[in-house]
């Protein structure tokens, strides 16, 4: 799974994963309260199931400045 994390710039990681968004965030040590998840360019709930073929974007909702 390709994961792009957008927070003050962009970070790209590749990771084997399938499970819920919540689980993914837990593994990445990210608080669900601070991000949104896009699955293949669509906003999804943290309970949504993600598979290894999905393109995932994790958007930080916390602004600075």
């Amino acid at each position: 799974m390709k994961i792009i994390i957008k927070k003050a710039g962009k970070k790209e990681i590749t990771k084997k994963f399938s499970g819920t968004g919540k689980k993914l965030l837990e593994e990445l040590k990210i608080n669900p309260e601070e991000v949104l998840i896009l699955k293949n360019n669509e906003l999804v709930d943290v309970d949504a199931r993600l598979t290894d073929n999905d393109n995932i974007e994790i958007l930080s909702v916390v602004s600075g400045g």
Binding site: G9, E33, L36, L43, L59, S60, V61, G64, G65
Partner: peptide, 24 residues
């Protein structure tokens, strides 16, 4: 909540920049 504002911006397809102020 801030999270909902971002969700609204994403749904409405407003461009959002993810840069942060270097002094923040």
């Amino acid at each position: 909540p801030e999270r909902e504002i971002m969700a609204y911006a994403v749904i409405k397809k407003f461009g959002v920049s993810f840069t942060e102020c270097p002094y923040a």
